[in-house]
Amino acid sequence: MTGGYGRGGPDILHDCTISVNKGEIAVIVGPNGAGKSTGMKAVFGMLNLREGSVRIAGEDITHLTPQDRVAKGMAFVPQTSNIFTSMTVEENLEMGAFLRRDDIRGTMEQVYGLFPILKDKRRQAAGELSGGQRQQVAVGRALMTQPKVLMLDEPTAGVSPIVMDELFDRIIEVARTGISILMVEQNARQALEIADKGYVLVQGRNAYTDTGEALLADPEVRRSFLGG
């Protein structure tokens, strides 16, 4: 993929490739301004691609709007304002399933199974929850569409280390149900530990691509990006 924001804006991504297989976790890491979030937005159709394509399960969706990509099985959890703060937890989940016309109760039970705390707080306004719980609502909302690919933009930004570990555990659980996960992370080391595949981006280019384990073991990557 090559592209940038707006019609005449400069390219931020240069020939960047990101992919994830079914049920796997792919993590995008890299220094600030490397185009991590931009890469994710490109996949979701939020910026103009000049070259390259986006495919889901072999189908070309390069020219679809983000909303149409949701219908094709993509779900995106933005880094900030990723919940409806004035609505209850349950309403947040219902809105996540807005495009679905079938019975959503089964999926809602699955989300409550994954995040039991949400079931207790389902009648409470999502804006009143703690940071970690809000992230759970955000992920839960995205899961309500029963996506093929779940994309998370820094899901652990601003939550405590304990909550972060818990969130990562939940993300692994989600992946085990057969959903592909693509996420951008600041906490590179922890994220690579759970990653099947890791992408290190530098200035919008793929610098290193390998399994999470291999990247963690690569002395070059360790020295440049993981702090030794």
Partner: peptide
């Protein structure tokens, strides 16, 4: 949240 509403379809 207009953006999130769009993301929800």
């Amino acid at each position: 949240n207009e953006d999130l509403a769009l993301l929800s379809g």
